[in-house]
């Protein structure tokens, strides 16, 4: 799925997969932090955005 989105031109770092157990709070925090940093670096998404106006 990531590969096809990337092939279509969506930046790879916007698509993230993880497997976190409900007992793994620390891992959850880590993953979320990492993803937010990656996405922040990319800036706002301009592709595949629906304009409702």
């Amino acid at each position: 799925m990531g590969n096809l989105l990337e092939h279509m031109g969506i930046e790879r770092d916007r698509i993230n997969f993880s497997w976190i157990s409900s007992a793994e709070a620390t891992k959850f925090v880590e993953v979320v932090k990492e993803i937010s940093n990656k996405v922040r670096a990319l800036g706002p998404n301009k592709k595949l955005v629906k304009d409702y106006n």
């Binding site: 990337e6 092939h7 279509m8 031109g9 969506i10 930046e11 592709k47």
Partner: peptide, 17 residues
């Protein structure tokens, strides 16, 4: 054909689709 698209940069790929 797939390789040709893959060789483009992200914005060009987006433009292609």
């Amino acid at each position: 054909d797939v390789e040709k698209i893959a060789a483009m940069d992200a914005d060009t790929r987006w433009g292609h689709f």
